[in-house]
Every structure is written in structure tokens, then in C-alpha cells.
Design a protein around this nucleic acid. Structure first.
Lengths: 180, 180
DNA sequence: AGCGCCATGTAAGTGGTTACATGATTGT
DNA sequence: ACAATCATGTAACCACTTACATGGCGCT
């Protein structure tokens, strides 16, 4: 599943510009599927070239022009085909965990800083999702609600684990030298 | 943090070949940092070129030759420097969640298949980590124990959430057409 | 005067994946 | 016979990231 396919999926919810889609990638999709303008705009161009979406130029007063994309019938077919993968992957790439593996080589304050930044990250995401839910929850399709709940459950589990087990990596007693 | 740095970190635990490191990437590191031979071997070559590791050719009877790598002092320095990032990232890339967002466009059996495959994946990983813990837990540094516990906590939370909330995406009643 | 929002794009670079290439030994 | 394990590598490819480029409007 690439950025193109996800953009196509987002367009099943109604027409939108690349700028609009970026917002979805930042809020609801942000925690499990990242994409920047550098991948969204080329993706939309490619989708238009393939006839999977249509593109309408819209002039606005006082604001820049926008390109509004809408999914076509062949776009829907393409999406349905892409959704047929019976075992879609779920991958984690964590510099945080990789760093923690080598905690015994780091000074305690450094470890504490890293754990603190993780918890801040968690809180920021929790706020983000609360905001998204506050405004859109009712109009979300069941899948989106499932996904948002999934994100919350995972994030809370992470917060909980880090808070309850930080001592494993910060307690100087169990650690080798390396620090003061 | 790239494959090079993680390989360097793994070598702080003792010398190893690329083949050996691959096993670590498959067991303990597998769930948060993937790497194949196509990235491990070039990484080790680059580390040797930079003088961060040494490489010793070892002939074996009845088995292919191996290249055994060991970290150098400047390698340790380099690693310590890399571990100074105060906010290492933790990213999820999930085709599974992306698919679930569009569950209302899919037939129920397809959704069930996807959820089932996710739960199988979870169980496989749980078995893998249980196996790794059974043989190595005592000799792991505290950080590795923390990371393994983290993985278990997250995976169990995922299993639990999927089992308890599958009905959100499989109950035909709350869904639009698309299926039979 | 300066920042942030709206809005779209390109070009170069990066880091990793996939497929290919080789081949002896050991177990079923 | 056939598969798995041990063991190392290269080359082409791919998807995405980062930095750059542009520019008006509205708020403080």
C-alpha cells in the first residue's frame, strides 16, 4: 500500500485538494501512515494520469488556486482491488527502542531525557486524536472509528509501559559504568 | 538511526558475522527494526571502511568461511555519539490500519480474513519473543529486557483491542452496501 | 515588520528492498 | 531426492524525504 492508494481511499469520502489530504495525513492517518507534500502531490498527478481521479482547477478570491480531485469509477475499482490483500503488514520502526537496547552504554540523564520525550510525544498524539474525535467522530465510517480506537489503545499501552518500567533503564544500581 | 548504527550497537555485545546479526534482526530487533542481508552486508563493509569495526576472515571445516566483525574504540565513540539524540523517533507504518479505514467498502469476509491474519501475526511474534526470552533473558542488558517487555505489552494490547473491537468493522448492520 | 496560513510543485538525495548469484553440508 | 542451514555478496530498483522555489492575505 503506497501513498497513491491511501490518497485514493481518502477521496472516497469526497473531493479534496492535496493540501486537504495533507491534513488527514497529519491528524487521523498521521500515527500509522506518514506522507508529506513531496509524496502527495506527485501521487495525485499520477492518479490523474491513470484516470483514477479527475482534477478540477478552482480559482478563489484572496487565496491561491486549488486543484480539487475526485475519484472516478475506475479509481474505485482500483482501490477495491488494492484492498484485497489478505494480510496487510503492520510495521514499527523505532529509533527509540533501538536506543533503549543500548541504555547500559548511556548516562542516566540521557536515558531520562529520551523517555521524557517519548511521553511528550504520546501526550501530543493523544491531544491530536481527541481533537479529531471531538469534531468528526459521528461522521466517521466504522473503520475509521476502529482505527482511532486502535491508536488510542496502543498509545495508552505505551504510556503505561514506559511510566511503569522506566526504572528498568534508569536505576543506576543495575547498570554498568559509562556514567558518573 | 540507520542499519549501520544498529549493527555497531549489536557488536558491543561481542564479535559477530553478518549472518549472526541477521538473526538478531529477526528475533529481538525484528518487531521494531527490520533489516535484510541487502542492507546488513553493505553496512558492515562501510563500518569497516570507516575503521569503526575490524574484520577477521575465519575458515571453518565443513562450512563456508565467515567474516567476523568486532567494534573498535572509535566505533564505540561513534555509537555513543549516535545515542545522544534526545528524541529518537518511533514510527508505525501500517497497511493494516490503512485498509481498516476503508472497511465499509469491503465485503465482511475480506475484513474477517484481514483481522485473522493480524491476530496470527501477533501470535507468531509472541512465540518468537518467548523463545528468545527462554534462552537469553538473564544475560540481556536491562535495556534489552525493557525493549522485550515493551514489545510484549504493545503486542498484547493489539491482540486485546482487535479481539474486543472486531465487531466494529465486521457487524454488517452498521455497514453500507458493498458486500452481499 | 514578521509570522503563519493557504496552496502547489520540483529535483536531488537517501536508505532500504528485491532479485539474483553461488555452493557445500546436514538432516528427512 | 529435497529442503534447510550456513555464509556472503551485488545491482537494479523503488518509494519516500528534504530542501528548494514562489507568493498573496490576514493577524499581531
Amino acid at each position: 500500500m503506497d501513498v497513491k492508494t491511501v490518497c485514493l481511499g481518502m477521496l472516497t469520502d469526497g473531493e479534496a485538494s492535496g493540501y486537504d489530504l495533507k491534513k488527514h495525513f497529519e491528524s487521523t492517518f498521521g500515527h500509522f501512515f506518514a506522507a508529506g507534500y513531496g509524496s502527495i502531490y506527485p501521487a495525485l498527478s499520477a492518479l490523474a494520469d491513470q484516470g483514477l481521479v479527475t482534477c478540477e482547477h478552482v480559482s478563489q478570491e484572496g487565496k491561491p488556486d486549488r486543484k480539487v480531485y475526485a475519484i472516478t469509477d475506475s479509481g474505485k475499482e482500483f482501490l477495491l482491488e488494492a484492498l484485497k490483500d489478505p494480510a496487510p503488514c503492520h510495521k514499527v520502526r523505532s529509533d527509540f527502542l533501538a536506543t533503549m537496547c543500548f541504555a547500559h552504554l548511556m548516562p542516566t540523564e540521557q536515558i531520562e531525557t529520551v523517555l521524557k520525550s517519548r511521553l511528550e510525544d504520546v501526550d501530543n498524539w493523544l491531544k491530536l486524536i481527541a481533537k479529531a474525535e471531538a469534531c468528526c467522530y459521528e461522521q466517521w465510517p466504522p473503520g475509521m472509528k476502529f482505527v482511532a480506537g486502535f491508536g488510542k489503545a496502543m498509545t495508552l499501552a505505551m504510556k503505561n509501559y514506559v511510566e511503569e518500567n522506566a526504572h528498568m533503564v534508569t536505576d543506576a544500581g543495575t547498570r554498568k559504568a559509562a556514567n558518573g
